[in-house]
């Protein structure tokens, strides 16, 4: 059974149809890359799958491990194992990263019918994971994304993913704005995360990320539809030729 199954998804935002019948199926253990020009609807797709308010689903269904989540609340989807790394992570002033992570982990544990981890166990794990991503201990005490550099924000998203251990992670341009070293750290984090039971959807503009995280499938989203799918060579093609060929394809 696919982990994520998007079927004929039509989405409208403020009287404008952004997605016009998207199909995407992601099986356990797979990595999919979604590419496409600016404004083509990649973030919209990611947000709608995560249940962000403000989008109107006109038609279609989204299933997570067989369960129809098209109408589910964002927190229900999250607790079923769906994770979205944001293209633009937002600040929550005064709420420490630690407090935020603990609240997230506790509600995940609760949803699994487990007790919340002890503060000590949580802190140990959070510190060790942060360290793997090159984030020092003080980082956990700072407000969520408060004054973080662009690169720190993106690493923080990966930190959250590693701690929450979702079944399906959608990473919306997590590579944008990262220097080469940071990109490698993030890629290593994602590769560590991968196993046969989970899956990753990478939204990206760059082939470079895909050198580190090798996708099984590459899709091109344009004009509100996936107009082409292929293997990793499709990404290389895009890197070389850009999207000029799209107009003919549409």
């Amino acid at each position: 059974m696919p982990l994520l199954d998007i079927e004929d998804l039509h989405v409208q935002v403020e009287d404008q149809v952004i997605l016009g019948g998207v199909h995407l199926t992601v099986a356990p253990g797979e990595v999919h890359a979604v590419m496409g020009p600016n404004g083509s609807g990649k973030s919209t797709l990611a947000n709608v799958v995560a249940g962000r308010p403000g989008y109107e689903v006109l038609r279609g269904t989204v299933r997570l491990a067989g369960e129809d989540i098209t109408q589910a609340s964002p927190e229900e989807r999250a607790l079923l194992g769906l994770f979205l790394a944001f293209q633009y992570p937002i600040e929550i002033p005064g709420v420490s990263n630690m407090e935020f992570l603990k609240a997230a982990i506790d509600s995940h544990a609760l949803a699994r019918g487990e007790g919340a981890p002890s503060a000590a166990a949580f802190i140990r794990r959070a510190r060790a994971t942060a360290e793997r991503l090159g984030l020092d201990a003080g980082f956990l005490k700072r407000g969520v994304n408060e004054g973080f550099s662009g690169g720190e924000k993106k690493r923080n998203e990966i930190l959250q993913m590693l701690l929450l251990e979702p079944r399906i992670a959608i990473l919306d341009e997590t590579d944008s704005g990262l220097d080469v070293d940071a990109m490698q750290v993030v890629a290593a984090g994602v590769n560590d995360f991968r196993d046969t039971g989970n899956a990753v959807v990478l939204v990206t503009h760059y082939q470079r990320l895909l050198d580190y995280i090798v996708p099984d499938h590459v899709h091109v989203l344009a004009g509100g539809n996936i107009i082409r799918s292929g293997d990793r060579t499709l990404a290389e093609l895009l890197d070389r030729d850009g999207y000029s060929w799209i107009e003919d394809a549409c």
């Binding site: 995560a50 249940g51 962000r52 308010p53 609340s73 964002p74 927190e75 989807r77 999250a78 607790l79 994770f83 979205l84 944001f86 992570p89 937002i90 929550i92 709420v95 407090e99 935020f100 609240a103 997230a104 509600s107 995940h108 949803a111 969520v144 959250q160 929450l164």
Partner: peptide
């Protein structure tokens, strides 16, 4: 939405913010 995407319900999220 950030809080809810991380599994924290809206009530708890507002109180936390």
């Amino acid at each position: 939405f950030l809080c809810r995407q991380r599994g924290i319900d809206a009530e708890k999220a507002v109180a936390m913010i």
